[in-house]
Amino acid sequence: MQEFLTKVLPNLSVRVPEFQKSIVDTLKMLGLSGSFVFLFGILLGVVLILTKKGGILENDILFQPIDKVINVFRSIPFVILISLLLPLTRVLVHTSIGVKGAIVPLVIGTVPFFARQVEAALSEIDQGMIEAAKAMGMGTAAIIFKIYLREGVPALARATTITAINLLGLTAMAGAVGAGGLGDFAIRYGHNRYMTDITWVTTIVLILFVCLIQLVGSFVEKRSTH
């Protein structure tokens, strides 16, 4: 077995600890920035849905700036965003490289995307349901938690799946500019030093991750749809 691996994966088999570390780094980046993205994205998405025209707290003064800022950030390509955010990243986490340095641009690059997805997901909820909730005497908090965030679960699961897969792709890109992880591993060895076995295996691992995320997402969506 050992011999076989050495033969098929000559470069990877001598860098197993480094490979393992890069997997862990990728998961760390995904998990940490993902948690922040989920939190801020839901928050912004809910604010958008409440304050937009016809929302239960319709408020143009709040909606317009958030809406515009999201549009601006969504139009900046991610590699450029990383570079633009360097000063901010240094202030926030005192470094601009490694897993830590990647979190800031990953979060800022993905929150606007996810917030839009959340807004779209919550827009699917029938306004009549909101009206019924109001007629029952429910307040804003109850409507957010008992209607929007409860009835919206299937659509939110879909949005989260898409965003997580997107985020995984971005962690690989962040690797290219010093963040570490699988992307960095593949570029350093696979790309720069023509160790194609490393490129292949990294790709397979990333595909497996995507499949796993999709599987979990679809499961949650299915379980929450009645």
């Binding site: 029938d126 009549g128 349901m129 009206e131 019924a132 109001k134 007629a135 029952m136 005497g137 429910m138 307040g139 209607i147 409860r150 009835e151 679960v153 299937p154 929450s224 749809t225 009645h226």
Partner: peptide, 25 residues
Amino acid sequence: SEKELRKERKKIGMIFQQFHLMPSR
């Protein structure tokens, strides 16, 4: 006020053409 209104709404039931039940419940 909004708060008093929420209390008052409990005394007024309402049903709709499209029912507006919560599908996840």
